[in-house]
Amino acid sequence: MNTKLSIGIVGVGKIARDQHLPAIAALDGFELVASASRNAQVDGVRNYKTIEEMLAAEPQLDAVSLCATPQVRFDQARAALAAGKHVMLEKPPGASVHEVDVLRSMARAAGRTLFATWHSRYAPAVETAREWLASRTLQEVQVRWKEDVRRWHPGQAWIWTPGGLGVFDPGINALSIITHMLPREVVLREATLSVPANVQTPIAANLDFVDEAGVPVRAEFDWRHGPVEQWEIVVRTSDGELHLSEGGKKLAIAGKPVEIGPEREYPSLYERFHWLITHGEHDVDVRPLRLVADAFLLGRRHEVEPFHD
C-alpha cells in the first residue's frame, strides 16, 4: 500500500471506535483526517456534525467510510459519490437491496470505488473452510448465530425500527459467510420471525434454505442467548464434518482443530478498500442482504413478549 489516501469517517459510534479507527490507525495506506458525527468526535482530526459539512470543508478527501446506521446510508453515500469520493459501506450496506444497486451504478458513472463490506468473511478461518468445502460433497448445513442483544446493542433503538434488521444485524454476518464459503448458491424456502409486540423487527428467526443441489441449509438466529455467544456453522460432508466457530475464528475438520492465522477482519477490509481504489475496481455483493430481504418477504411473523432494554 504505497499510495497514501486521505479518508474521513462518518458515524462515530461503537463499531467505529471498536474496529474502524484502530484498523485505519494500524495501516500505512490511509490517513484519517476528518470525521462527521452528530454526537461524537475523534481526537486528532477535524470534526464535523454532518457529512455535508465535512465534504464541503474537506475537498481533498480521497475516500469516506460510512459507519452510521443503515437507514441513512443511501443519502450519505450519494453525497460522497457526488463529491467525487470513494465509498466504503459498513454492513449492512443499506436499508434495501435496490438502493445499494443504485449506489453501484452511481459509483461506476462517477468513476469511483464502492465497497460493500462483510467483515465476517475476513475472519481467519473462513477462507480455509471455503477452500476445503470446494471439493467436497455437502450433505447438510446448520447455522447457529445467537447472542445477547443487551450486550451487543445496549440502548440502540434503531435496530428495532424498519431498516434496522433486528436479529438479522448479527445474523447477516452468518449469511455473508455461507454465501462466500459454500460452493453453491442458497435459496430461502421458508422462515419464521419472532417479533416482540412493541417493536418492528425480529428478536429471533429460523430460516430454511436449500442450495442449488437441494442440500438443506438451516439457520437459527436469536438475540435472547447468553452469557456466551454461539456463532457457529456446521457443514456435514461425505468426508466428515466441518465446524466453524466463534464467528470464524476457529475451525475443526473431522473433529481435529485446524491451525489458522490471527484475527484481523477490519484491517483486511481496509487493505481491500485500498486495493480496490488503486486498481479502479468495485466490490458490491448484495447476496447476504437479499437473503434477509427474502426472509422479511417470505417469513411468517410470530409475536412474542415485548422487549425492554
Rank of each mutant, 00 (worst) to 15 (best):
S105A: 15
A123C: 07
P154E: 10
V195G: 03
L175G: 04
I159A: 08
F168A: 03
E185Y: 03
Q156F: 13
W145R: 00
A129Y: 00
W158V: 11
G111D: 12
N198H: 07
A109F: 03
A129R: 01
W158N: 09
V141I: 11
M106K: 12
P183K: 09
L188H: 00
E140T: 06
S194R: 14
P124A: 05
A197D: 10
N198D: 14
L175P: 10
L165T: 05
P162W: 03
L182C: 12
R151H: 08
P183R: 07
A116L: 04
L182P: 08
D169R: 15
R121A: 07
R108M: 13
E185L: 08
D148R: 04
G155P: 04
R121G: 03
T137N: 12
R189F: 02
F115T: 03
E140M: 04
P162T: 06
A116T: 05
L114N: 08
P196A: 12
W160T: 11
P196N: 14
G163H: 09
A157M: 09
I178N: 01
E131T: 14
H180I: 01
V149T: 02
A157C: 02
P183M: 06
A134S: 15
G166P: 06
L138H: 09
A134I: 02
R108G: 10
N198C: 11
P124E: 09
A191M: 05
V149P: 00
M106P: 03
R151G: 01
F115I: 09
Q156C: 08
R108I: 15
V187F: 13
A129H: 00
W145Y: 08
H119D: 09
G171T: 05
Y122C: 06
E140Q: 13
R189A: 14
W145P: 00
R112Y: 10
T179W: 07
R136N: 06
G155D: 05
E185P: 10
F168P: 06
A109V: 08
T128N: 10
T161F: 01
V141G: 00
I178A: 04
S120V: 03
R150V: 02
R112T: 03
E140G: 00
H153S: 09
T128Q: 06
R151F: 04
T161K: 15
I172P: 00
L182Y: 07
T113D: 10
V167Q: 05
A134V: 01
K146L: 15
A116Y: 00
A109H: 13
T113C: 10
V126F: 03
L165K: 10
S120D: 14
I178S: 01
A174C: 08
A116V: 04
I159M: 14
A110V: 06
W132S: 06
R150T: 14
A123S: 15
I159V: 13
R104C: 06
D148P: 00
L103C: 09
A123H: 04
W118L: 12
T192C: 05
P183W: 09
M106T: 09
A157R: 13
